[in-house]
């Protein structure tokens, strides 16, 4: 009897195991298909970036370049406007991305750091002193609900007309924010600030206030408390927040397009130039730029993976 019971139990267990394995296979198959769908555009972009002009739009499509070339990269990384060796029909123009890359890196890094610094202090004030009242923290995000197109033209008016006019008539010096680093940095700082405050609030709320009380009783002033206790505990959150707003700024297009030209050029605006080039659509260099734009974000993500995991799993501080 007992032996039979054991056998049945074992058979049931084996059946369960088989069922679980089958489910696992299905689950993974679905996920694999989904991953392929999601990653395909990126694959296509990278593949195209290595294709020669003739291969960009062939039918049937070439999944991988038949004669791989670095020409597109050579073209976008060219140091001079016209390198004769790069001249070729349909792509005779070499678009250097150095300027765009530098501008974007400078503007995005500066504005993200500024927003992070300001936002962290603001979030601290809101979390600890209830600045703005009970619903303020929810109102902050509402600012972001305004579509950028609504403000883009208004800001353009300010930057290009009102500020120059006001400064020249009041101070005698004409100051314009249009097509300047300062103009775009200011705007990016302001537009990402709500996100920074919102994200940092969730991290700072997690820090038990008794830690600050303890530090203050030991003689630490408010700034020391922030520097020695609060900031180290939310450092991971700050890294995640920085990455988040950096990506937002890095990919921002509309404001950069409206408020700059020709002095300041970010990568997204530069990318757009290929779209309307008189030579037709330059898919190759465009794909190469796309790849180059993506890389820093991916590298940054890998470098700070530890913080990302920590930052995204709230409640890591033992209370």
């Amino acid at each position: 009897m007992k032996a039979v019971a054991t056998l049945t139990a074992e058979a049931a267990r084996a059946r369960r195991l088989r069922r679980e394995r089958r489910r696992g296979i299905i689950r993974h198959a679905v996920l694999l298909v989904w991953t392929a769908v999601v990653l395909f555009p990126i694959f296509w972009m990278i593949s195209t970036s290595f294709k020669d002009a003739g291969e960009w739009v062939t039918w049937p499509p070439h999944w991988l370049p038949h004669s791989p070339t670095l020409h597109n990269y050579a073209q976008i990384f060219a140091f001079s406007e016209m390198d004769p060796s790069l001249s070729r029909q349909a792509t005779e123009q070499a678009f250097s991305i150095w300027k765009g890359l530098g501008d974007a890196a400078f503007i995005c890094t500066t504005s993200s750091l500024l927003a992070l610094l300001l936002g962290t202090f603001l979030a601290y004030a809101i979390s600890r002193f209830n600045v703005g009242g009970r619903y303020f923290r929810h109102l902050i995000l509402m600012i972001r609900m305004v579509p950028p197109i609504v403000v883009a033209i208004a800001i353009l008016m300010y930057y290009a007309i009102m500020i120059p006019y006001a400064t020249s008539s009041l101070l005698g010096v004409q100051i314009s924010l249009f097509d300047t680093y300062t103009g775009l940095i200011l705007l990016y700082t302001v537009t990402t600030l709500p996100f920074v405050i919102w994200m940092m609030l969730s991290f700072i709320d997690e820090v038990p206030y008794t830690l600050e009380h303890a530090a203050r009783l030991m003689g630490a002033g408010r700034l020391t408390v922030l520097r020695r206790v609060v900031i180290p505990l939310v450092a991971s959150g700050m890294v995640v927040t920085f990455l988040f707003v950096f990506i937002l700024n890095w990919a921002e297009f509309l404001l950069a397009l409206t408020l700059t030209h020709p002095e300041v050029t970010t990568l997204t605006v530069l990318l757009n130039k290929f779209q309307s080039a008189s030579e037709g659509r330059l898919y190759g260099p465009q794909a190469a730029i796309g790849t180059v734009i993506t890389l820093p974000v991916v590298i940054l993500g890998i470098l700070i993976q530890k913080h990302l995991v920590k930052g995204f799993s709230f409640g890591t501080i033992r209370k």
Partner: peptide, 20 residues
């Protein structure tokens, strides 16, 4: 006086040790 100027020591309910 600020808490730190009162010459006190305090042990908290949740101990408030700095986790980092």
């Amino acid at each position: 006086l600020e808490p730190g100027e009162r010459g006190l020591g305090m042990v908290f309910q949740d101990l408030a040790l700095f986790p980092h």
